[in-house]
Design a protein around this nucleic acid. Structure first.
Lengths: 128, 128
DNA sequence: GCAAGTGTATTAAAAGTCTTAGTACACTTA
DNA sequence: TAAGTGTACTAAGACTTTTAATACACTTGC
């Protein structure tokens, strides 16, 4: 389900949270799907349960999952986070565009780049 | 010249390097301008000289400044780093566009955003 | 040559973060 | 009741960041 990259310098919990978030965003994990338990995923990845716990806590704070004590963690309904996600990527895009413009990228080049990306196939999760 | 933000969780040397890079990119520091010495900037910011040394080392590695032992650090001619910078921001823009597309932002919205940004005035350094 | 200012290198220690380890508690399900 | 779940806490080790102190080589100006 998840592979840890030990060359990645970021904390493990952040890496795990990001990969699970990616699975949710891409639709691999559907709404209300049950996530592995803290302990089982920790066993699976050979890390400490505390590390998974922290990753799940972050995912919950970001709105991607919800927790039922005694039962487990479940994927939040996509309506809950899609608008926030859209706001997030829009802000990211704004910042990137400003940087590109200030670095001397012309408007035409930026628009071409955008059209090029939108012509690409949307890859599910075969990027890694 | 530079103000440190102690709420920023990143290392000080990274923060200092980024702020100086920003000054160079925006043209506040012109080509071949002399930077403050390691010791004087350290005094100025109330940090250790080693911290500034590390920031300068990073700036040199990124091509923004060059060092003359015994004399000081100087801003590199902009030709030296502008193409690399352009490549950098283009890659950043590509990634942001893919994220936006995958999150459901329509092509029209993305293009509108781009046009909107390119209509903005280019701000020198009044963003912070 | 000499003194002052420069970048550079080294070692040590303090402080903080990340991760592991172990333990404990409350809850849910069967 | 037993097993599985999330949660909380403390302690220790590893690592990074930062400070501190010192030393050396170079350049400039006297």
């Amino acid at each position: 389900m998840i592979v840890i990259d030990y060359r990645d310098k970021r904390p493990l919990y952040e890496q795990v949270a990001e990969k699970i978030a990616h699975l949710i965003i891409c639709g691999v994990l559907e709404s209300n799907a049950k996530l592995p338990s803290v302990r089982s995923l920790a066993m699976d990845l050979s890390v400490n349960p505390n590390t998974i716990q922290r990753a799940y806590a972050q995912l919950e704070q970001d709105g991607y999952i919800y927790t039922v004590v005694g039962r487990g963690n479940y994927v939040t309904d996509s309506q809950e986070w899609k608008s926030g996600r859209l706001q997030e990527v829009s802000d990211e895009l704004r910042a990137a565009l400003r940087n590109a413009r200030d670095a001397g990228l012309s408007r035409e080049e930026a628009l071409n780049l955008a059209n090029e990306i939108y012509q690409e196939k949307k890859e599910g999760s075969a990027n890694d």
